[in-house]
Design a protein around this nucleic acid. Structure first.
Lengths: 139, 139
DNA sequence: GTATGTGCAAACTTTTTGCACTTCG
DNA sequence: CGAAGTGCAAAAAGTTTGCACATAC
């Protein structure tokens, strides 16, 4: 992804543009399999060897707060991140650590319709993420 | 929950029955809002003051492995546990840490039917958990 | 009696924090 | 220039580990 677009994304959210933020945002886009902070640190070290670990965590938190990336929930004790903002779901493998995206507009529509009629009292729905748990054949 | 039933559940899985395992399993059932390890430790300390933290983590892992409890994924860096094994979904509040159960047989049926026709190539589905993200009105 | 489970404390991993220094706008 | 961001190193938070001792069956 080119720098102009990264700068634009940060600017749109009113965030200051810094080389660290650009590198980290790019890393999340580039490492498209829900990278951990460690994956991101390793990736940006190639081009920005002296970015501090603390900075990476702070920047990731800021990017999440500003809605440029999302956190992915896992049943492990570290966080993973996702640069894809459009509605999509996740395949979780019981055998390996792979979390694969599952895009399905028909399913989104189905869920939306279903919950339009079925109101959950006292709760305002913002987003659905279906966790599809199972195993990849290759595992 | 009475001891007889707790013993039975452990025995059914071929697990040795120990006071620690019974106390921890009971705690997960009793603390029905997806407790953390810390919540569980605090709870069992009331009746079993000298259960070690390491033991709690080991027992929780064993209970998960034997299918007596489940892990609940969160976007925080600690694990939460769930004693309810039947299919159900979760309401995640963006404002507070509450994760509320959402049982809906009609939805389960809808998803099951949908994915029976729509095969995901290379992936064998075991279970669905819909994460319904939003906010409780009270928040 | 033996395999398995537990207590304890130390260690490990991931993430957060505080503060001086630097940079963006 | 001033507010905001970064580097660094220390520490916090959550979890795991190794081993001697204890317990279930």
């Amino acid at each position: 992804m080119d720098n102009k677009l990264l700068k634009q994304k940060l600017a749109e959210k009113g965030m200051k543009i810094t080389p660290q933020r650009m590198a980290i945002l790019e890393a999340v886009y580039e490492l498209n399999n829900h990278p951990t902070a460690e994956n991101i640190i390793e990736f940006i070290r190639k081009t920005h060897p002296n970015v501090a670990i603390g900075t990476v965590y702070k920047v990731l938190e800021t990017l999440v707060e500003n809605g440029l990336i999302k956190k992915v929930t896992t049943d492990r004790n570290f966080m993973r991140y996702d640069g894809i903002l459009e509605s999509h779901h996740h395949l979780y493998c019981s055998n390996c650590d792979l979390i694969e995206d599952y895009h399905d507009a028909e399913l989104d529509e189905l869920l939306k319709k279903y919950f339009e009629s079925k109101n959950i009292s006292g709760f305002k729905i913002e987003e659905f993420v279906l966790q599809i748990k199972g195993t990849f054949n290759k595992c």
